[in-house]
Design a protein around this nucleic acid. Structure first.
Lengths: 166, 166
DNA sequence: GTAGGTGCAAATCGTTTGCTGATTC
DNA sequence: GAATCAGCAAACGATTTGCACCTAC
């Protein structure tokens, strides 16, 4: 069985185990989340679901994603500008690396972080339940594009206009 | 001179140095940011500004905070549920510890993190320009409150209802 | 005097919700 | 056959914006 197939089976069993119904729309969302690279927006999920179920509504996608999030089977990467992303394959805290130009997100390997929550808990008395580590930068492709644009004013304007919040 | 006084002078000089006018409303926002604990919401800033300038509008507070953010003099802690906070004293990346019950935010001491951006840059080819590390947990006060509430159903309902997104 | 800033209200946009008819189990 | 779910459209809430008037310089 494929990795995404196993993940899909798990999601289905968790859903049914809690007494939720497996509608075609939900199954489509689960499939997409199980097979994704882990950084989909709701709009992206919606677009892919509609290929199979054109009458699916955006609200249903939101409801399903929220349901999975509450069950701990999807990790929400929330951003204040509304560009939220969802990871249905690794629904536990892990570092992310986000390109501020093209919004691509990857999972970098970062060493020796597992002790940090315990360290913070010990020094502050807080009970740590979650954490998040994001790096923001410019991916190699966007760096190349910027270099190619050179120092002409059009390139500078493009760079100015691509500044985003995070 | 006090620390917040020095910080205020710095903010004023940066603003004027870039040709921006120092209006009473802006000065009030700068004072509050310079004197704050570093984790104010826009609404909190607005409420404090209005004590001195009751006719100040929320839009002006937003504009001033955005201006300072673009100048790199305020750190925005954006959250996807809209509860954004602003730090006018330490406008550079540093870890935060957020209570998911009362929303209190403190700056924990976390060791040996400065090498991480370089490590990620080396292994991925990204040019890292920013990063963010947040810990989410329950502060000692809220832990005590939950223990006092005990295992009665009212306490459990209170805990259920206080779950927030992050 | 004038460019820039303020206040107001309306617009924006991702997300949530109320409701009615349809569907899973 | 019910309780749950989907679709729709309206509501929501933080933030942004257009515009007419005002004011710091």
């Amino acid at each position: 069985m494929t990795e995404s197939g196993a993940r899909l089976d798990h999601l289905v069993s968790v859903l049914k185990g809690r007494g939720y119904r497996l509608t075609p729309q939900r199954k489509a969302v689960l499939q997409i989340l199980a097979a994704s690279d882990g950084h989909l927006s709701v709009e992206q999920i919606y677009a892919r679901v509609k290929k199979d179920f054109p009458m699916t509504s955006l609200a249903t996608v939101y409801k399903t994603v929220t349901l999975l999030k509450e069950m701990g089977e999807v990790l929400e990467l929330g951003f204040s500008d509304g560009g939220n992303r969802y990871d249905g394959r690794k629904p536990y805290p892990h570092p992310h690396l986000i390109c501020i130009r093209c919004r691509k997100i990857i999972d970098p390997e970062v060493t020796a972080l597992s002790h940090l929550p315990q360290e913070v808990a010990s020094s502050t008395g807080y009970r740590i339940v979650n954490h998040r580590l994001d790096f923001f930068g410019i991916c190699p492709e966007c760096q190349a594009a910027e270099n190619q644009a050179g120092n002409n004013s059009a390139g500078q304007a493009a760079r100015r206009n691509s500044i985003r919040r995070w």
